Amino acid sequence: MLNIENLTKIFGANTAVDNVSIKVDKPMMIGVIGASGAGKSTMLRMLNRLEDASSGRILFDGQDVTSLQGADKRRWQADCAMIFQQFNLVPRMDVVSNVLHGTLNKRSTTATLFNLYPTSDIHRALDILERLGIAGHAAKRAEALSGGQQQRVAIARAVMQDPKIVLADEPIASLDPMNAQIVMDDLRRLHDEDGRLVIANLHTLDTARRYCDRVIGMRHGRVVFDGTPDQLTTGAARDIYGADASFSEAATSTSIEALNTPRPAAVPA
C-alpha cells in the first residue's frame, strides 16, 4: 500500500530525515513519536508533497509519489489529506465553508473564485459535521469555536477530500486533555469506520499506545523503533528520546487521570 524507501531530506548542513524506510501493507492507524526536531513533521510534509525529498522514494499502490508534478501532484494532495496542529482554517469564514475547502483541488478556478459549491457538496459537508458532532456550529465563524472544535472542523475538511491517507501533524498538541481525547477518537474512527490509513505525529506515549496499531519512533531523523504499542516499553521510549533513567512518562501524559493525580511531595534534602 505505502512504501517509503530510503527517504532523506537535507536542509543546508542539517539532515532532517535520514534514510527512512517504512512499509505499510494495509490501512491502519500509525503513531509517529520522537523529540522535537526528530524529523516527524518533515516526513509527513514529504508524504503530502509539501516538501520535496532530497533523495529516496515514496510509493503508494505502486505509484511514485515523489515524481509527481502539476495536476498529478495536486490530485495526490487531495488523496493524502493533511491536518495541522494550528488547524489552518479561515478564521472569519463560516464552518461549513471551511469544510467545503476540502474540495478545492477538484473544482474549477471560476467556481473557487466565486465560492460556488454544488448542493450535493454542501449536504455532504453538513453530514460530515453531523458525524463529528459539530453540525450545530455550521453557520458560525471558525474563529468563534474552541480549539477542540476548530480541530474537528479541520478533520471534517480532510474527510471532505475523501482521501486515501490522512496525515495529522501534532493534532492535539495545543488542546486540553478532554478535547485531545475527542479529537483522537475522531481520528481513530477514520480508520475503523472508513478504512483509511491514518498517520499521526504524536508527542505523548499514552496517546500512541491507546489509539495506534503501530508506533514508529524517530530520533535525529532516523527510525529507531517500529513496533506495536505493547512493545513501546519505558526502556524503548528512553532510547527514542535519548533520555536517561530519570525519564518519566507521566511528564508527557495527556490523560485526564494522570493530570489530576497529585505530584508526590518532594523529599527533604
Results as ranks from 00 to 15, higher is better:
L59G: 06
T66M: 07
H123R: 15
F225A: 00
M82N: 04
P262T: 11
N260M: 15
V17F: 05
F11N: 04
H137A: 13
N6C: 07
I134R: 00
G12K: 03
Q151W: 05
I216Q: 01
V166H: 08
K40E: 09
A236P: 06
D230L: 03
T254I: 05
L187A: 07
V267F: 12
H191K: 03
S174F: 06
R74S: 13
A269T: 14
S146N: 09
R49L: 13
N14D: 12
I155Q: 02
D64N: 13
R222F: 11
N115R: 14
A200W: 06
A265R: 14
C80G: 08
I30F: 01
V166E: 09
L44E: 09
V224N: 01
S55M: 04
Q69R: 12
Q69T: 13
R209C: 06
M1L: 14
R75F: 10
Q151V: 04
G37W: 00
N14C: 06
C80W: 03
V99M: 01
N115Y: 11
D185E: 14
H101Q: 14
D25V: 01
T233N: 05
A16V: 01
I172H: 08
V183F: 07
D226K: 00
N3P: 05
H220T: 07
L47E: 04
K73W: 03
V153W: 03
V96H: 09
A180P: 05
A237S: 15
G37K: 00
C212E: 04
G235T: 12
K140A: 13
V267P: 05
R219A: 15
G235D: 15
L116M: 13
T252Y: 15
R141E: 15
I165Q: 05
Q231V: 02
I240L: 03
L50C: 03
D64V: 00
L167M: 01
A35M: 03
S120D: 15
I30Y: 03
R189Y: 07
Q85E: 09
I83Y: 08
D72E: 15
A53V: 08
A38R: 00
N105M: 03
L47Q: 01
C80M: 04
D230R: 05
I216Y: 09
K164M: 15
F225K: 00
G133D: 12
G70N: 14
L145W: 07
N19Y: 09
A111L: 01
T112E: 08
S36W: 10
L197D: 05
R131E: 14
P264L: 01
M28P: 09
F11T: 02
G195W: 06
Q181Y: 13
F60Q: 00
G31P: 04
T15R: 09
R188F: 10
I216G: 02
T110S: 12
T15K: 10
D121M: 01
D239H: 10
N179W: 12
T254A: 10
I256M: 09
R124P: 08
T228N: 11
A245E: 14
L187H: 04
V223E: 03
M93F: 12
L187G: 11
A38T: 07
T204F: 11
E193L: 06
T112Y: 06
A180I: 02
A13F: 09
F60P: 01
I33L: 13
D72M: 08
Q161M: 02
D176N: 04
R222T: 14
M29K: 02
I22G: 13
P229G: 08
G102F: 00
S108I: 00
M218V: 00
Q231F: 07
